[in-house]
Structures are given as structure tokens and as C-alpha cells.
Simulated scan of single mutants.
Amino acid sequence: MKYYTEISHIVRGALRSDKSIVSAYTQQLIEKLSTDGEILAVKGLSDQLNSIGANTMKSASGTLNVSRPIPVEKDNRFSLADKTHPTVQESIVFLSDDNESTVDAFLSYLVKKDRLHDLGIPINPTLLLHGEPGTGKSKLANYLAAKLELPLVTARADALISSYLGSTSKNIRSLLEYAQSEPCVLFLDEFDAIAKARDDKNEIGELKRVVVSLLQNIDNLGDTILVAATNHVHLLDPAIGRRFHYKLELLSPKERERKSLLSALLSKFDFNNEGMDICVMASEGMTGAEIEMATYEYLRFSVINDHTPTYIGLLKELLLVMHPWLSFQGDDSKYNGIHKLKELNTELYTGKLLSKLWDISPSYVSRLLKEQK
């Protein structure tokens, strides 16, 4: 059922006489209906909120501003975060079996959080993502928000961190308080920028106070969903780890994930299985972001120039991203890469495949390899 999440929370809030929940999820429902073009429904719900003074509704915790804007940095007026509404189709991720199990467990935990709350069992809906750049941390945060049908509030590190004494802690507090005021997934990317170890001798005392403030604010988040990501998990303060119930390391995709990713990217084009398998094997060691970038670059070139995409063309683009020293056209040294690829993987880079890559005969490839020996 569409909008089930919002409707169920509205009903729950009504049964508990909690106007803050009712108004917050009604506002979220209005935003989704507006995106879907349901003008009459949007007007009806908006009128009902306005008729009961929803913009200043009282709850046990005080005044709730339903349409509260994202807070801004005090001095430069930069927004502290960006708010988006990801879709599952745009945020599909291809994970290892272990990581997929962890993500499923995290989502199941959140789906059952009301049941846990009713039983008096404390919840800690927090997830720490870490791994090399391009392994899919941001995309996974988008996917989680999409699966939960919640907006994603992505913190802007450049706005959070201020040169003014004490302002960074205030910015963090403002953003986390905002996340508590409405249903959302709060995403703190580049997390090490505000959560570095306090024993780092290169850091000034101000940043150490920021970490203390961050820890205190995370402790007060309650059931707000928090996802943090870092490329440098070793830099994080040890106390940070204890604040995150789930932790997930994202690595470069293995063969199964690479094949799933390439199949999804090429679903509208006719690639034979042999060509697909060669591209999958050749892309070993690439991150998901690198594979996606290379594939889209090649497809854009093919479409713009009215070329039919081929696996050889895609393979060239993947190899150029992996090995900048390669050249398939230009000066006389362009054949230098033939023996290097052969040395990298003798079984994969056969004389037949090398001849297709450089558009020369297999016999010429054989001669070049003998000469280079």
C-alpha cells in the first residue's frame, strides 16, 4: 500500500494523542502527494493542518514547527544539510552476501522499532559505513532512505565546520535537533572531519570539544535514524564506535557484484554473455563508482556518435580507467600496453582479445609479444 508508512504513523500518533507525530508525518505525506501531483489531496491535508494551527502545534517536548527549514550556519548563512527524497530505482546497490545480510538486518530492526518501543526495549538506529572512496557509502545511504520511504538529510561538512570558536558544536547541535524534529534519515558523510580521535596531537583543543559535543548529541538522538560514513575509520575517536549499533565495511565489488552492476547498467543494450564475462573479469579491483563512471562515459559516447555499444568498446574504457598508461590510438608507442596486459593476466588477455582491443591481426600481436621479449 502506497503511503503506508506515513498513514500508520499518523494513526499511531493519533491513538497516543501525540500531535507531534501526527503533524510531522502528515507534512511528509503532503510532500509525497505533491511530488505525485495529487493537488486536491495536498490542499485538503494542508487546510486541515492549518485549521488546527499545525505550524505551532504543542507536544510534550514543546513547540513543533512542521515546515521548519533546514538550519543554516550562523555567520555565512550556508545550509547545514541538503534534503532529498531518493527512490529505490535510483539507489540500487550491489553488496556482498555478508553486507547484504547486515543491511537487511538494519532495515528489519527499523521496521520493528515501534514494537520494540512498545515493549520498553531501547533502540539505537545507527549505522557506521566505512571503506575506500567509490565503494558506495553515499549510494547505500540513499538506498536506506528510499527503502524506509523517508527523506535523506545529508550534512554538508563545509558548512558544519566553522572557523569561529564554538560555532561548529552549535552547528552540529542545530542539525541533530532538526533531524529529531521530523521523520528522516540523517546522513553524516566525511564523518572523520568532525569525529577525529581526541588523542591526535595535531588537532587543536577546539576540535576535541567538537567531538565531545558530537557524542553528547548522538546520545540524545533517541530513535532518529543516523547513518555516518568515512573513508578513514582509523581516524575516528574510539568512543564513536560505541555509539553505532551497526557497522559496515564496504569493499571493492567482487565478481558477483561486478556482474550484477554491469548487467544493470547495460540492461537496455545487447551484450553477449562472453563479452560481459570478459568485462567483469577485467574490472577486478575497480570500485563500483569507477565501473559506473567508465560504463556511462562509454554509453554516452556511443549514443552521441550513433555507435552500437560493444563489449570491446566498453572493455577499452574500463581498462583506460584502471591503467592510465594504456593507449589504444595515437603515437607509435601505443602497442606498448600489449605486453603489460599480457603480463597482468595471461589467461584473460589472449592474443585474440588483444588483437580486438588494438584492431590488429592476431599474428601481429604474436610478433609484437615476441619482439618485446
Score class of each variant (00 low, 15 high):
Lys83Pro: 04
Lys83Val: 09
Thr84Ser: 13
Thr84Ile: 14
Thr84Pro: 03
Thr84His: 02
His85Ile: 15
His85Thr: 15
His85Lys: 12
His85Tyr: 15
His85Pro: 03
Pro86Val: 08
Thr87Glu: 13
Thr87Ile: 11
Thr87Lys: 14
Val88Asp: 05
Gln89Ala: 12
Gln89Glu: 12
Gln89His: 01
Glu90Pro: 09
Ser91His: 02
Ser91Phe: 02
Ser91Ile: 02
Ser91Lys: 01
Ile92Thr: 13
Ile92Trp: 00
Val93Lys: 00
Val93Gln: 01
Val93Gly: 05
Phe94Trp: 10
Phe94Leu: 00
Phe94Arg: 00
Ser96Thr: 13
Ser96Tyr: 07
Ser96Ala: 03
Asp97Cys: 00
Asp98Arg: 11
Asp98Ile: 15
Asp98Pro: 00
Asn99Gly: 08
Asn99Leu: 02
Asn99Phe: 08
Glu100Ser: 12
Ser101Pro: 00
Ser101His: 14
Ser101Thr: 11
Thr102Asn: 01
Thr102Trp: 01
Thr102Glu: 04
Asp104Glu: 13
Asp104Trp: 03
Asp104Met: 07
Asp104Gln: 14
Ala105Gln: 14
Phe106Arg: 09
Phe106Leu: 06
Leu107Arg: 08
Leu107Lys: 06
Ser108Ala: 12
Ser108Thr: 07
Ser108Gly: 15
Tyr109Asp: 06
Tyr109Gly: 11
Tyr109Ile: 10
Leu110Tyr: 12
Val111Ala: 12
Val111Asp: 14
Val111Ser: 14
Lys112Ser: 05
Lys112Pro: 00
Lys112Gln: 11
Lys113Leu: 11
Lys113Trp: 11
Asp114Cys: 06
Arg115His: 15
His117Met: 11
His117Lys: 11
Asp118Glu: 15
Ile121Ser: 02
Ile121Met: 03
Ile121His: 01
Pro122Arg: 05
Pro122Phe: 10
Pro122Asp: 02
Pro122Gly: 09
Pro122Leu: 08
Ile123Tyr: 05
Ile123Thr: 14
Ile123Trp: 04
Ile123Asn: 04
Asn124Lys: 15
Asn124Val: 07
Asn124Glu: 10
Thr126Asn: 08
Leu127Gln: 04
Leu128Asp: 03
Leu128His: 04
Leu129Asn: 05
Leu129Cys: 04
Leu129Gly: 10
Leu129Asp: 11
Leu129Ile: 06
Leu129Phe: 11
His130Cys: 12
His130Arg: 04
His130Phe: 15
His130Gly: 07
Gly131Phe: 13
Glu132Gln: 14
Glu132Trp: 13
Glu132Cys: 12
Pro133Asp: 04
Pro133Glu: 06
Pro133Lys: 00
Pro133Trp: 06
Gly134Pro: 09
Gly134His: 01
Thr135Ile: 09
Gly136Ala: 08
Gly136Thr: 07
Lys137Trp: 11
Lys137His: 10
Ser138Val: 08
Lys139His: 09
Leu140Phe: 14
Leu140Ser: 12
Leu140Cys: 13
